[in-house]
Design a protein around this nucleic acid. Sequence first.
DNA 1: CTAACTGCAAACGTTTTGCATTAAT
DNA 2: ATTAATGCAAAACGTTTGCAGTTAG
Lengths: 128, 128
Amino acid sequence: MQIRNTKQRSKILEILHGTRSHPTANWIYDKVKVDFPNISMGTVYRNLGLLEEMGQIQRLSCGSTFDRYDANIEPHIHFACKNCGRVSDINDLNSIGKLKEAISTIDLQINSYDLTCYGVCKDCQNNH
Amino acid sequence: MQIRNTKQRSKILEILHGTRSHPTANWIYDKVKVDFPNISMGTVYRNLGLLEEMGQIQRLSCGSTFDRYDANIEPHIHFACKNCGRVSDINDLNSIGKLKEAISTIDLQINSYDLTCYGVCKDCQNNH
DNA sequence: CTAACTGCAAACGTTTTGCATTAAT
DNA sequence: ATTAATGCAAAACGTTTGCAGTTAG
């Protein structure tokens, strides 16, 4: 089954590349609708699935009842706020280095991995 | 709201302590039914939620569409097989040490974290 | 006696699917 | 011309919830 390029899929990938917010399918759906008012959720989900299979994006759960999507496929660490639900990247090179070491020590064929940390983000701590 | 002890909840926790399979709510439901034939899924989910809030168990997603539950709350690493779906623990002390270092380097208040690795388990590799 | 917990069933939100039509190659 | 991808709507799935009755404290 050969994969064809479609405007819808390109737009979805473009949207994902243009954000750091680890959006949900619904958020993406709303954004694509600006250019493709008739697009359906089915198409969004099918394309997110395809892009994931192609290794161009990552699917995240982050403890929520719904999935999030991330076009950043470099090794990095996720932080999910238990209060506001936002998911952000931890790009601390030191931690990422240690994480890579932890993974390379494991005697199993590991194709991908995800480290998600849970806590209360600084914004939520300040606004008490 | 004070929490009361119930036979159903104790049984659920006992079942979780007696397995290393990171079971789903449905698997747990089937097991509890042996002793409580009339128990409902609602009760199972409510108790799993309570036990999680009480910090006695952990909820895992592991890339699946459903949740898994784990009574092992010590820091450890999960391995999810992309082929058979099984989730197992990686108890390599070296990796866990590195992981702890990675976490402690991060300048954020982290209450919990989960490292899940994805690949094909040895069983699935052998049975080609 | 009080109110937390239960079993039941219905509802929920997210994701997947079947199908007829459209569009990419 | 072929068949992958689309839009639509309905279904599926895991999980949550409202309620009347039960049980732990």
